[in-house]
Design a binder for these strands. Structure first.
Length: 700
DNA sequence: CAGAGCCGCCTTTTT
DNA sequence: GGCGGCTCTG
């Protein structure tokens, strides 16, 4: 979620931004003006979808709709913030518009979370419920798997926790029976369906008795509230307008929520592009945007077709790759007449590289060359299929002192110390949270899974009665711990209980101090980790409960991590490295797409099905259409099997299958540089032995 | 001999 | 960071 008032003050001083400032074309204007009660906008890449949606919201407010009666559902917090800011910019510049409340905006999950917190009492929730992330959910699955399938699972191939969670989640998100999901995702396990069904049932029951909600639960409970005759009426009554961005990435459950969110009194407007549907692993499918008119009665459709972003050669390449898709890609991207960028006609490059190191060098060279030519680092991005694909490049960027910021990858929430503090925040509000206990107890010296389990049994986390009684049982439970662990353990448990009249921020700091003590004894690099903890403590400003702060971070972790070349400060310039997924909705003057080798793009993990391959194609399409004027595709010819060692085992790569003859003919090939002054080709060798033997002479 | 802890292996995308 | 397999320890 975000705070609009702050932004408003910040932005109010900037230039003329009435609706005219959006400079809408005729198609965009009709999106703004449409009074259709169910409206679908099909908007190709770079056609000003965000502009049109933002202008529509601004228009609604200027026409008298109170801002707080508008719900804007987006795919990321970043997108929501950007649109809300732009809306307010326009509205605040419009004379005579009464300042009203705040637009309600965010992701499906964060809005659901907000609704559930607000109405926890009425909906029968414990007020301090825990929101668990998929890795916690998988751990819970693992416990249940042991309980239900136990010995029989050990003897044969039985789905592991990750797959079990995937099966469960997919059934929920697609609203289809387990049998179907199983047949599609893991046919080899079909005969175990009864057992897997039991595990799913147990999983649901266990979450309930422990006061845990997973990501799917947030949506399920929001929908259940909406489907209730009276509660639903009340919740719908909060809004006059519902707008949904990136509609190609919704799943069946989300469509269902929207269906129950809009009654006769609400207007609905969805925007998206089926050619950019790239989240099928989260159970989305382009079918929902394609079927909008049959899902919603008397729906109308508008299209945005003028591309304002990219030059013609870039669009030609994207169109060439899209045209070979087995379905979809019905619209061909055309540069808009008034597109200034289209005056430039630099042809996209295909840069053949010897190997990964050569690729890193060439990207750095190109980035710096473009910078000399007038593009700042911020005008450029390096896109990768998987977050770790930029590892080698990051080293070279650091070596050359080029600052960068990385988008995508889940590293922040995977960091042990972050998880530890979030677990403690959850526990402070919800002592039933067995997963949080289990995690924190094992940070204690000499304590592993077995001792933790004994403590949990004594605590009786799922016993009937008041949750706070669990803390009363601590004096008994602590007996299960080794003596060395008792001090830290007592300290932790004491910190979890909030003192009378203690301000929330003080409590948060106390919890962080107790967790910090555990971090210091568990990690060498405790210093930087402790710094993260105080940042998390700061994030409790403005919430009512620690579990709420933990949930906010879990649902909306920081989108970027600063690079090794130093924390770029706000006025500095930096290069963006992003996964192709996280690049959706963004644009840069120059885009460098690296690792365009088959197996990387498309990812060989995606090749188990035809749909998987087609989604990879859409992903490439998304990546290419991010570029405004300069686009380079890098293809390393040779991959070393152990890139961080000196060994020379390698294999030869093939150019990504998406770059077929037709596509390559749209590219200017940059030949491999066999040798030059900067990077002469020498065989990969180990100099360690000769150095060592040379030095040995010195020791006599 | 149960259980903690360590070493070496691998790692798609994210609400 | 997680996992399987191994070793060390009480």
């Amino acid at each position: 979620m975000f705070d609009m008032d702050q932004e408003l003050d910040l932005l109010a001083s900037l230039g003329d931004h009435s609706l005219d400032a959006f400079r809408l074309d005729a198609q965009q204007r009709s999106v703004v003006d449409s009074t259709d009660r169910r409206l679908r906008v099909l908007a190709g890449a770079g056609t000003g979808k965000t502009t049109a949606l933002t202008a529509r919201v601004a228009h609604l407010i200027m026409a008298g709709t109170p801002a707080e009666r508008i719900l804007l559902l987006t795919f990321t917090r970043r997108a929501a913030t950007e649109m809300v800011n732009r809306t307010y910019l326009a509205v605040s510049q419009s004379p005579g518009t009464r300042r009203t409340g705040r637009i309600v905006g965010g992701t499906f999950h964060s809005v659901a979370h907000r609704v559930l917190r607000q109405h926890a009492d009425s909906l029968g929730f414990p007020a301090g419920f825990s929101v668990i992330d998929p890795s916690d959910a998988a751990d819970l699955m693992d416990v249940i798997r042991d309980g239900v399938a136990g010995r029989s699972a050990a003897k044969r191939r039985f789905p592991r926790k990750g797959l079990l969670l995937d099966l469960y989640s997919r059934a929920v998100d697609t609203q289809s029976p387990l049998t179907e999901v199983l047949a599609k995702v893991a046919p080899w396990a079909a005969s175990d369906e009864p057992l897997i069904g039991d595990i799913c049932r147990d999983y649901v029951a266990r979450k309930r008795s422990l006061g845990l909600l997973d990501f799917d639960d947030l949506l399920l409970h929001w929908r259940a509230a909406l489907m209730h005759p009276r509660a639903g009426e009340a919740l719908r009554g909060d809004f006059d307008h519902v707008l949904v961005d990136e509609y190609q990435d919704v799943n069946a459950l989300q469509v269902d929520i929207i269906r129950h969110l809009v009654g006769p009194a609400q207007q609905l407007c969805v925007v998206g592009d089926d050619a950019q549907s790239i989240y099928s692993f989260r159970a989305s499918t382009p079918r929902h945007i394609l079927d909008f008119e049959s899902d919603f009665e008397s729906a109308a459709t508008l299209a945005l077709t003028n591309n304002y972003r990219s030059t013609k050669p870039i669009l030609d390449l994207a169109n060439a790759i899209g045209s070979e898709a087995t379905e979809g890609f019905s619209t061909v991207l055309m540069p808009a007449a008034k597109n200034e960028a289209s005056q430039r006609t630099a042809v996209p490059l295909l840069v053949r590289c010897r190997d990964e190191d050569d690729q890193s060098n060439r990207v750095c060279d190109a980035v710096l060359d473009l910078r000399e030519a007038g593009l700042s680092l911020k005008d450029q991005a390096v896109l990768v299929r998987a977050a770790h694909h930029s590892d080698r490049l990051e080293l070279e960027l650091t070596r050359r002192g080029i600052p960068f910021v990385k988008y995508g990858g889940l590293r922040y929430l995977e960091a042990a110390h972050v998880k530890d503090l979030l677990a403690a925040f959850r526990l402070a509000d919800n002592p039933r949270d067995e997963l949080a206990w289990f995690r924190l107890l094992q940070r204690l010296p000499g304590v592993g899974p077995a001792a933790s389990r004994r403590v949990l049994t004594c605590l009786g986390v799922d016993r009937e009665g008041e949750p706070t009684e669990i803390f009363l049982r601590w004096t008994l439970a602590r007996e299960q711990l080794p003596v060395d662990a008792l001090d830290d353990a007592d300290q932790l448990v004491k910190s979890l209980q909030r003192d009378n009249d203690e301000p929330l921020s003080a409590h948060a700091a106390r919890v962080a101090a107790a967790v910090g003590a555990l971090i210091i004894s568990n990690f060498d690099d405790a210093e930087s980790r402790i710094a993260d903890l105080s940042a998390l403590v700061d994030s409790t400003a403005g919430v009512q409960r620690l579990s709420e702060a933990a949930a906010d971070v879990t649902l909306e972790p920081p989108t970027s991590t600063a690079g090794l070349a130093g924390q770029p400060s706000i006025d500095e310039d930096w290069l963006v490295i992003s996964t192709m997924h996280s690049a959706k909705g963004l644009e840069w003057e120059a885009v460098h797409l690296i690792h365009a080798a088959d197996g990387f793009i498309p990812s060989d993990m995606a090749l188990t099905s035809d749909e998987g391959l087609e989604e990879e194609r859409r992903l490439v399409y998304v990546a290419l259409t991010r570029a405004k004027s300069d686009l380079s595709i890098y293809f390393p010819l040779r991959y070393h099997h152990q890139p961080f060692s000196h060994r020379d085992k390698h294999s030869w790569a093939q150019l990504s299958r998406f770059f077929t003859g037709a596509a390559v003919s749209r590219l200017r090939e940059v030949p491999m540089e066999l040798a030059d002054a900067r990077s002469a080709v020498i065989p990969r060798i180990s100099t360690a032995d000769s150095v060592a033997s040379g030095l040995n002479m010195l020791w006599g």
